[in-house]
Design a protein around this nucleic acid. Structure first.
Lengths: 222, 222
DNA sequence: GTTTAGCATAACATAGCGTTAACCCATTCG
DNA sequence: CGAATGGGTTAACGCTATGTTATGCTAAAC
């Protein structure tokens, strides 16, 4: 579990301490937040591998936090696990709708939780390995792309765009899709996308991204 | 949840029936097995998207079944979820070690289970929804046509026209139909259609679209 | 043989994209 | 602190694939 960044979000300090202690024993890099707002800020700057998110928070609802985070492609590979004192169907269902990867009801059994996280992380790793397309591998931890054994560290937006396109190789993403997924609801001109595509092509070869005129762009899976 | 193949494995017929009923309501393609051996055989021939696997089985232990299945790369993209009456730490941990994606303790709440599966499937591969006629597959995600294993990326209008004609193979579409469906209410001359048909024939062979003089065009479904 | 719809080719128009350079804004650095 | 750097965005402008039209030709229908 080395090298993994973990974000704990809970309003109760005791639980934070308990969990932090246990995860640090496992060698994880643990950060904590007590409010939804802090959680979002930290998550976006830290880009953790795992977020443990309490549903009950003083300001923003944990489920809402999750929805907000899930919208940001930077956190595509982040595992989000809900914690809740409530065991009702209702909140479990809402949790999955919000894009959670798992759901755990308090009281927490540390060992179970650890193994759950390990399983999810392992799965993600495998996933990344399989997601080596066209000699290109994407490493969201480092904001870098490996192509033909050479590592390139690329700027955030380029990385986000490339990740997005690579998330479904060969699919043509429409410009509107790209705008809303990569840029959120900012008011951005069309040329901005082109420029970023251009930079990516400059770095990795003209052929990796193909234009479909009048529609959008497509990352070539071969 | 259409088109997904689900394999249910449990030794109790009542549970199988209950689950089968509920998943079929969701439009899933449900298959069942009552023993570990059957489960393995079925899984390998069916290659389901999801396997729900009871831990307690009359012959082979569910965990062992999972380990065996996980070794086979054909099932790399298959999600395996354990079901168990026992809630103990022990078997949960063993389950994740064996390569399970999730673990659910009975009694099962159908809604929770459904959302769990949906969340896992969403994170998994995209599935393709293409029709295949006459060795030609049209893939609207990719804006491309596969013919005899070769992919052609074609311009938007050509793609739209071809899709339209292929939507009902062997039907003769009248020119007015084509105009209104493919071009909307633009004021377009008749010759435009011809030219696009010509380009399609150039790319995929003269025979794929047949002219019916005085009426319109027909995509040959053979 | 005459008529007509459709074909082929080339010419044309333009939406949509590519490219460049300049700008703003943060962050870092001297 | 101002300067320098790097990323993100924009505006201007050129370019080209794509879509459309024009024109003369061919083949089918009667």
């Amino acid at each position: 579990m080395q090298e993994y960044r973990l974000l704990l979000v809970d309003d109760e300090k005791d639980i934070l301490k308990l969990l932090q202690y246990n995860f640090e024993l496992e060698g994880m890099n643990v950060h904590t937040a007590q409010t939804g707002k802090d959680a979002i800020d930290l998550a976006l700057s830290l880009i953790p591998n795992v977020i443990l998110l309490d549903v009950m928070l003083p300001d923003i609802d944990g489920i809402e936090v999750c929805e907000i985070l899930r919208k940001n492609p930077v956190l595509n590979n982040t595992i989000i696990i809900f914690l809740s004192a409530r065991g009702e169907d209702y909140s479990q269902v809402a949790g999955y709708r919000a894009g959670a990867d798992d759901y755990i009801v308090k009281p927490i059994r540390i060992k179970v939780l650890l193994h759950k996280i390990k399983a999810l992380l392992d799965r993600n790793r495998d996933y990344n390995d399989f997601e080596s397309i066209n000699n290109m591998q994407i490493d969201s931890d480092r904001f870098s792309i490996m192509k033909d054994g050479k590592e390139s560290i690329i700027p955030k937006k380029e990385f986000e765009l490339l990740s997005y396109l690579m998330s479904s190789p060969d699919k043509v993403f429409r410009r509107e899709e790209i705008l809303s997924e990569v840029w959120g609801d900012a008011f951005i001109g069309d040329r901005t996308i082109d420029v970023h595509v251009r930079k990516l092509r400059e770095k990795f070869g003209r052929e990796i991204i193909r234009t479909v005129k009048g529609v959008g762009y497509r990352f070539m899976g071969n």
